[in-house]
């Protein structure tokens, strides 16, 4: 896909946005893994131990993928990872909304909002998904370039 100046600008803006958001989210969650595990447990989707395993692993994966996006390296692979994570977050948020759970999102660590923030978080994640799609589409002339 050929991209002109506008395409290049949009690509870099989306890359920096998605990279920045995931880097920040990973850093905040990774700072207090125990509390983040409590946030995951509130969604009641995972068995007990796996809340803690996810809380230990997710921030590091987010940090790595976010860093690669920010530094414009391995962008398609990083976009694939953050896209997959984002999809999981969207499924978790929709599931929490459908079950009427009165919980905080936990998207940026513990205590980042009340029950209304689930809808906001869902809208934010859908926006991020659009940005990730644009990164994928606008990365180089060869649609499969790294």
């Amino acid at each position: 896909m050929k991209k002109g100046f506008l395409g290049t600008l949009v690509y870099h803006l989306c890359r920096l946005l998605a990279g920045g958001v995931f880097f920040f989210a990973g850093a905040v969650k990774g700072a207090d893994v125990g509390a983040f595990a409590g946030e995951i447990a509130n969604y009641r989707m995972l068995p007990y131990f796996f809340n803690y395993l996810a809380a230990a692993v997710l921030p590091m994966v987010e940090l790595m993928a976010g860093t690669l996006l920010l530094f414009n390296r391995r962008v398609r692979a990083a976009a694939l990872v953050v896209g997959g994570l984002n999809l999981v977050f969207i499924v978790a948020l929709v599931s929490a909304l459908l079950r009427g759970l009165d919980i905080g999102c936990g998207c940026f660590g513990p205590g980042d909002g009340g029950s209304s923030s689930l809808v906001e978080a869902l809208l934010r994640d859908l926006g991020l998904m659009a940005a990730i799609f644009l990164i994928w589409r606008l990365r180089g002339d060869n649609p499969l370039s790294q």
């Binding site: 803690y52 590091m60 994966v61 690669l68 990083a78």
Partner: peptide
Amino acid sequence: HLFLEALAICLVGAFFGVLLHHPLL
């Protein structure tokens, strides 16, 4: 190749995540 790269990002992240937080786990 792309899938393997994405998998590598996840595995390296998981490795360091578990390594850093193994006392908690």
